[in-house]
Design a protein around this nucleic acid. Structure first.
Lengths: 209, 209
DNA sequence: AACACATCGCAACTTTGAGTTGCGATAAAT
DNA sequence: ATTTATCGCAACTCAAAGTTGCGATGTGTT
């Protein structure tokens, strides 16, 4: 939305304001929460006037989405240890670590429970997940080439199976989430893979009837 | 919060207002969304004045929480077919059906993505999940007694493993959710159970190192 | 160094919805 | 028929979103 070419000549001032407001937005989000996130407070914290914020961002939601999107754009490490078990464990633990810090909690709340009803943030959320999926897919491909996973394993399904129990605890049951949970997710995922339950497009599998 | 004993004598009028406002709240939620849910609109839709709403509920959030809690209090069917596969499939499909209707979508959005940051609704959400867990636990107990599941299977873990991939798709990846997903969740869960990955409190299990 | 122009600060708005208060009207139980 | 809690109504206060016009400031150019 703001990734267009910068206005012809003066490119100097905008960048600083941009990062200052982004930082202030996330900071306010972390210690006030989404509900109490006012544009005035963000502006004041950024050392900038309210009007300036509205000149750069359409409204409050746009600002928040922009700040979250930029924060989420940090690359995640893609493990390559030579064994699928340790690779998956690293992935699961990185999810856990990303969302258990105080900042992670606040961002999670805003990202997945705060402003989620509007289509833009839903799209952003989906895109974040898709990006990570694409980035991590080689891990599964290599495991298949090594013969550690069945050849018809669906990488996307594996990663969803890995992530799902973690997000369930983060978003719904609100249990403490730690490496124990991550490791159990790995065990469940590997059991499912080796049982052939994560192959693509198999809607005709027996389920018990 | 409003389950106290009714005021001594006149108990007639309050009940009708209560259900009317509840219904109006959910109706407004469904076709306007959480963001556009105003007390005035709810009151008007319920054929009641704004002030009356504020006399019964502390604020907007309390009203919404109360309405959602009452709606969620409907009992879900507890399957008992004699086979764990069909029991689990029925459970998974009931989750899918509960949240794929238009009303279910709106309620999901409010319950898990709309007003989730405040502690009361987080508690309500957790409680709803715990309730269903308790209600459904006999299904797993019977399966263990029948010898269809290992004796040290953790019922809570089984149900979380069953529900997690469905919620992931509902809340994060926003994929279409149908019986196909439910059935795959069953396959994954059964694979995990039979591999012994869903036993209680086993933090010392090998994961690949 | 001086100019030009975009951006910023500032104050004064409008609008909207939350939540409150006092009073008169209404409906239910006795 | 009377009592009493509840409801309708209007008139508030308050906070935050979002807007506008103008003067001040900083940035890149000549």
């Amino acid at each position: 939305m703001w990734s267009g070419q910068p206005p012809a000549r003066p490119v100097g001032r905008g960048a600083k304001v941009r990062v200052a407001v982004h930082a202030a937005t996330l900071a306010e989000l972390v210690d006030k929460g989404y509900a109490a996130l006012t544009v005035e407070n963000v502006a004041q914290r950024a050392g900038v006037h309210k009007t300036t914020v509205y000149r750069r961002w359409k409204d409050r939601e746009s600002l928040l989405i922009d700040a979250l999107a930029e924060h989420m754009a940090t690359d995640i490490p893609v493990p390559d240890t030579g064994a699928i078990e340790t690779d998956l464990r690293a992935l699961a633990r990185s999810i856990v670590q990303a969302f258990t810090s105080p900042a992670g909690q606040a961002i999670l709340a805003a990202m997945f429970t705060g402003a989620a009803h509007l289509p833009e943030i839903a799209a952003a959320r989906r895109q974040v997940f898709d990006d990570r999926l694409a980035r991590v897919e080689p891990v599964l491909r290599r495991a298949i080439e090594r013969g550690q996973l069945p050849g018809d394993t669906d990488p996307a399904e594996v990663l969803k199976t890995l992530a799902a129990p973690i997000y369930l605890r983060l978003l719904i049951t609100a249990e403490p989430v730690d490496e124990t949970i991550a490791d159990q997710a790995v065990r469940v995922t590997l059991a499912a893979v080796h049982a052939g339950a994560l192959r693509p497009g198999r809607d005709d599998e027996p389920v018990g009837e």
